[in-house]
Design a protein around this nucleic acid. Sequence first.
DNA 1: GGCAATATCAGTCTTAAGACTGAGAAGAAA
DNA 2: TTTCTTCTCAGTCTTAAGACTGATATTGCC
Lengths: 208, 208
Amino acid sequence: MIRVMVIDDHDVVRKGLIAYLQTDEEIDVIGEASSGYEGATLVIRDKPDVVLMDLKMENGSGIDATADIMKGHQACKVIILTSFYDDEMLFPALEAGAYSYLLKTAKADDIVSAIKKAYEGERVIEPKVASRMMEGYHKKEAERHDSLTDREMEVLLLIGHGMTNQEISEKLYIGIKTVKTHVSNILSKLDLNDRTQAAVYVHQQKLL
Amino acid sequence: MIRVMVIDDHDVVRKGLIAYLQTDEEIDVIGEASSGYEGATLVIRDKPDVVLMDLKMENGSGIDATADIMKGHQACKVIILTSFYDDEMLFPALEAGAYSYLLKTAKADDIVSAIKKAYEGERVIEPKVASRMMEGYHKKEAERHDSLTDREMEVLLLIGHGMTNQEISEKLYIGIKTVKTHVSNILSKLDLNDRTQAAVYVHQQKLL
DNA sequence: GGCAATATCAGTCTTAAGACTGAGAAGAAA
DNA sequence: TTTCTTCTCAGTCTTAAGACTGATATTGCC
């Protein structure tokens, strides 16, 4: 039996996924969690063979949770499940220790298959995503140098929501001076003139 | 038995949802579809009591599919399932004939409950969404009356390009004071706080 | 003619933005 | 250990933004 844990903040998806997985004889769902933090804790305690992890969750991202898991239970195979539009997260996910990377548009049986393959030591990277990876690789290689840090990207996305520096500082629990520093660095790195152009950038690059 | 059909282009979600629903004794899943078009056809042919419809699908939206269904099988209760960020689709959905409107962050049992309620003639509108609806209602009511003038729309789009007041004034051959007046009126009419939010608005409403 | 909507612009005032300089702390990498 | 990066924050200074009030010209409508 492959011991599996499902982490997804969408109750519908999680319960459904579990119900479907239970129909397979080789799979045993030993636990579930609705947040990355809770999930990481459970994984380290119960040490499942495979974890199905939603990438985007309200309380803490799947990336962070994956990184936490790898610290406490390195043998675990984390399969990232993601919706279509965040394939730019593939690299951070793999870097954090994710084993496979699937789109939610994948067939349900592909998920089951990916679990079994992961258990046997074979990675599955969604073809669509993999091809984009190759396209974007060289570009990003050049851009990466003077690219945004994690924190800066975080701030940039909040600007893309239309937030002021004050609001961002409250959201991130940091000083407004710090936010201003981040914003200045963002504008400088992306060669933009003001936050409005930054917001436009976010939407044109479909970062949101 | 309540005869249910599930329409969702995410195979994981669909299969999972079905597997979960089948565990309920009162519910019988009689069909499924991975696109709105295919789903509408099946619904009209097999006439289920309740339809679970994903709002965002790759091939044709859930709104259109719902409208099609209501033309061919009006007694059908369509429950819209949606992710968190498209509550602006509530009105179009209800207009198209949707019966209930749930977020995917809802508990799995809430979905089951919503199906039973729909079958018995009771609507379920997600509270979070409903409250926003009330907020947005008057706004939209007022918006249609004194929506933006041609000139204001012109200015709004330039803001959406990331231009400053100075640049806009040069582009339109008018004084910067005039631009400021337009901007103030735009922000007031659209209930926004600053030009950054205006730029975000432009892109979210796909005006550019 | 009178009326309403629109577009234009002035003046004043307050504040958020952003540039620039400098610097301390933590962590990773060499 | 030293070095580098990142994240944090302070202080100063300049300017663009935006609110508010008020004014004039034009157009179309009743």
